[in-house]
Amino acid sequence: MDQHKHVDQRKPASEQLLALLDGRRLSPAQRRIAQYLIDNLAEAAFLNSVDLAERAGVSQPAVSRFAAALGFSGYPALRDALRPIVLGAVAETPQQVRRNELQAAIAAEEANLATLHELTADPERFAALGRELAASACLPVLGLRMSDPVAYYFCYGAARIHPDVRFVDSAGSAAFDLLLQARQAGGTWLLAFMLPRYAVETITVLDEAHRQGFKVALVTDSRLAPWADRADVVFPAPVGSRLVFDSHAAPMVLAGLLVQAIADAEPARTQLRLEEHEALHENHAYYLH
């Protein structure tokens, strides 16, 4: 039996299609298919898989995998579900379709931030980790592939209030060397970001970090992720999956909260370091006024 979601056929076609896509973990190629369906649903619902693949600019197997990702037994079953949506829905203009799509993406991010809002109901969790990270004489931060920008955002802020933050943005022997050097410099914690699509190499770095004696704080999109057991502390931050690539509103906010927690753990050090940075900025006119 197909395990796809029930959709409300009273809603516009684009909203019904977005409901089918909601919460699905799709690859970029699969999202290209989804985008083509959103933009051309009236036509696409009557195409075979080969034609749909050609129109969307992907392979035919990608179409089959897309249908499976939505919970259908195959593409014919997905097409059978799309046709009633097209035939029974109120006609929409292209502008209405795109509006529904963009608003759905924003609504999904609002829901992600609401989840993060619930997480902050226990501020001591952040404060406790902030004290641990602040006390780590050297703080390595891991972020590979799509997790890299969020990890870098954390590093950019943390490096201004923590004396030794080191960004681990590559895997393999280079990462192992960085961990060893961080350990030799007095590091006790590794902060890791592991967000979809999950880089396999991240697991090897986490395992090596434990082997070298680090404790691991992990930011990922679900506390129930199978790699969560590799971390001593897990902070979940859901990601938006409505666009071609994931959007990271909640993980970025969480990264900022962790920087804040480090700052709060060492207020005197934080103030001194920030004042030194401000003096440097003023002397060299880094920013426009």
Score class of each variant (00 low, 15 high):
79 R>G: 01
149 P>K: 08
78 L>W: 01
52 L>K: 11
84 P>F: 02
267 P>G: 09
20 L>I: 00
9 Q>M: 08
204 T>D: 15
130 G>Q: 01
238 P>F: 07
194 M>L: 15
101 E>F: 10
99 R>Q: 09
234 V>K: 03
158 A>R: 11
112 N>H: 15
45 A>K: 01
114 A>N: 06
107 A>W: 06
71 G>W: 09
169 D>P: 11
152 Y>G: 10
116 L>F: 11
201 E>D: 14
39 D>Q: 15
135 A>E: 03
168 V>E: 07
162 H>T: 11
221 D>E: 15
10 R>W: 10
230 R>H: 06
48 N>Y: 05
209 A>D: 08
167 F>I: 10
34 A>M: 08
184 Q>S: 15
135 A>M: 06
79 R>T: 03
35 Q>V: 08
148 D>L: 15
97 V>G: 02
93 T>Q: 01
228 A>F: 01
189 W>E: 07
275 E>P: 13
64 S>G: 11
226 P>A: 15
276 E>F: 04
51 D>S: 10
42 A>T: 15
130 G>K: 00
113 L>C: 02
227 W>Q: 03
275 E>G: 04
82 L>T: 02
205 V>R: 08
205 V>D: 07
129 L>A: 02
94 P>Q: 08
187 G>T: 08
194 M>F: 15
255 A>G: 12
238 P>R: 09
101 E>T: 13
12 P>F: 03
47 L>D: 05
80 D>L: 08
99 R>M: 05
245 F>S: 06
75 Y>L: 01
111 A>E: 04
15 E>N: 05
222 S>L: 05
29 A>R: 09
211 R>F: 09
27 S>C: 01
4 H>I: 00
65 R>E: 06
134 A>R: 00
81 A>R: 00
236 P>E: 10
76 P>C: 07
97 V>C: 04
189 W>R: 04
43 E>H: 09
90 V>M: 03
118 E>V: 00
199 A>T: 06
156 Y>K: 00
179 L>D: 09
289 H>P: 13
26 L>H: 06
218 L>Y: 08
286 Y>L: 06
125 R>S: 11
223 R>A: 12
96 Q>R: 12
142 L>S: 06
96 Q>C: 02
155 C>Y: 05
58 V>C: 12
50 V>H: 13
265 A>P: 00
263 A>K: 07
59 S>Q: 13
243 L>D: 07
35 Q>L: 15
113 L>E: 14
158 A>C: 14
281 H>T: 05
233 V>T: 12
67 A>N: 11
225 A>T: 01
155 C>N: 05
161 I>E: 12
247 S>E: 10
162 H>F: 11
80 D>N: 04
165 V>C: 10
159 A>Q: 09
190 L>D: 04
223 R>P: 00
154 F>K: 09
105 A>P: 00
46 F>D: 03
2 D>R: 04
277 H>W: 13
191 L>E: 13
94 P>T: 08
229 D>N: 07
268 A>I: 13
71 G>R: 09
270 T>H: 10
237 A>I: 05
69 A>L: 13
148 D>F: 14
241 S>H: 10
229 D>Y: 05
282 E>D: 15
250 A>W: 12
33 I>H: 14
14 S>V: 13
